[in-house]
C-alpha cells in the first residue's frame, strides 16, 4: 500500500520538476528588460548581476535531477531531489524573512506572489514525496512510470490536488484570465481597426469623397481610433474626412465627419426627396 502511494507520486514530482524547469528558463530567457528578476526568489538573494545565472542554474539543476531520476536507478538522484526540496524549504523560509515582498520564483514569473505559508507548505509536501521515493524499489524512474496502473491513480490525483491547493499560482493565473484590461488600457492594432473601417457602411458611403486611399493621420483616444483622409466635399471644396472606429466589439460603431480647412464641420449632403408613390 505504502509502496503504491510512493510510486504514484513519481509522475507528480516529475511533472512539477519539468514545469518548474521550463518556466524558469522561459522567464530568464525572455527577460528583455534588466531587473525583471529582481522580484523573484531565489535569484533575489544573490547580487544583481547573478540573477539570471542563478535562475538558470536552478532550472538546469532541476532538469539534471529529473533526467537522472528517470534514466538511472542511482540513489544519488533520489537523495539529490530530496535535498533539493529540503534546501528549497529553507531558502523560501529565509526569503520570507529577508524579502517578504518577493515571490518564490518556483514557476518563474507566474510565482510573483510573496512567499506565504502555502508556498512553504508545498515545498514541505514535495520534500516528503521525494523522501518517500527513497523507499521505492531500486529501478529507473522511467520503468516505474511505465509500470504505473490505474491502481495508482487515486494516490497520484490526491498528491496533485494537495499540491494544487498549496499553489498560489492558481489564483494568479485565474485572475489574469478573469480580469481583462478595459479597452481604453489595451494596446490594439491599428491595422485591425483599419480593416474594420473598410468594411463598414460609413466607409462605403464616403469612399467616393476621398482623394487618396491611405490615411494622412491616425491616432487613438481612449477606445476610439481615428483615421483622417484628404477629400473633397459635395460642393468640391477640400476637406478632411475623419472616421472614428470604436475599438471594442465585433461590429464596432463607426462615425464620420467632414471638416473644412478652417476647422468647421461640413454638413453631409441632405438625402434626396423621396419619390411620391401612387396608391
Amino acid at each position: 500500500m505504502l509502496t503504491t502511494i510512493v510510486i504514484a507520486q513519481l509522475p507528480v514530482l516529475v511533472l512539477l520538476l519539468v514545469a518548474g524547469t521550463v518556466a524558469k528558463i522561459w522567464t530568464a530567457a525572455r527577460e528583455s528588460e534588466p531587473g525583471a528578476l529582481s522580484k523573484l526568489g531565489p535569484a533575489v538573494l544573490v547580487a544583481e548581476r547573478w540573477h539570471t545565472p542563478a535562475m538558470l542554474c536552478c532550472a538546469f539543476g532541476e532538469l539534471f535531477l529529473t533526467v537522472g531520476l528517470l534514466m538511472t536507478d542511482y540513489s544519488f538522484f533520489r537523495w539529490g531531489i530530496t535535498a533539493f526540496f529540503a534546501v528549497s524549504t529553507y531558502v523560501l523560509w529565509e526569503l520570507r524573512r529577508r524579502r517578504p515582498d518577493v515571490g518564490c520564483g518556483c514557476f518563474g514569473e507566474v510565482s510573483a506572489t510573496p512567499v506565504g505559508l502555502r508556498s512553504l507548505g508545498r515545498t514541505v509536501v514535495l520534500t516528503a514525496m521525494s523522501a518517500g521515493m527513497l523507499q521505492a524499489p531500486g529501478a529507473t524512474g522511467w520503468s516505474m512510470l511505465t509500470g504505473i496502473t490505474w491502481a495508482h491513480a487515486p494516490a497520484a490525483i490526491g498528491g496533485l490536488l494537495v499540491l494544487l491547493a498549496l499553489s498560489p499560482e492558481i489564483e494568479e493565473a485565474a485572475a489574469r484570465l478573469r480580469y481583462r484590461a478595459p479597452c481604453e488600457q489595451r494596446p490594439l492594432d491599428t491595422s485591425t481597426a483599419l480593416n474594420r473601417l473598410r468594411v463598414s457602411k460609413a466607409w462605403q458611403s464616403h469612399e467616393s469623397l476621398l482623394s487618396g486611399t491611405e490615411p494622412i493621420d491616425s491616432w487613438r483616444e481612449l477606445c476610439w481610433r481615428f483615421f483622417a483622409y484628404p477629400g473633397l466635399s459635395h460642393s468640391g471644396e477640400p476637406v478632411d474626412v475623419v472616421f472614428a472606429i470604436y475599438l471594442s466589439g465585433r461590429h464596432p460603431a463607426v462615425r464620420v465627419a467632414l471638416v473644412g480647412i478652417d476647422g468647421q464641420p461640413i454638413k453631409a449632403k441632405p438625402l434626396p426627396d423621396s419619390l411620391p408613390v401612387s396608391a
Binding site: 493621420d217 481615428f226 483622417a228 475623419v242 472616421f243 462615425r255 465627419a257 471638416v259 476647422g263
Partner: peptide, 22 residues
C-alpha cells in the same frame, strides 16, 4: 504616417464624435 498637428487632431476628433472643441 506623417503626424500633422495636435490642434488639427483635436478639431477632427471633436467633429467625428460630435463634441465641442474646448
Amino acid at each position: 504616417m506623417p503626424y500633422r498637428s495636435a490642434e488639427r487632431r483635436r478639431v477632427l476628433a471633436a467633429a467625428a464624435l460630435g463634441r465641442t472643441v474646448q
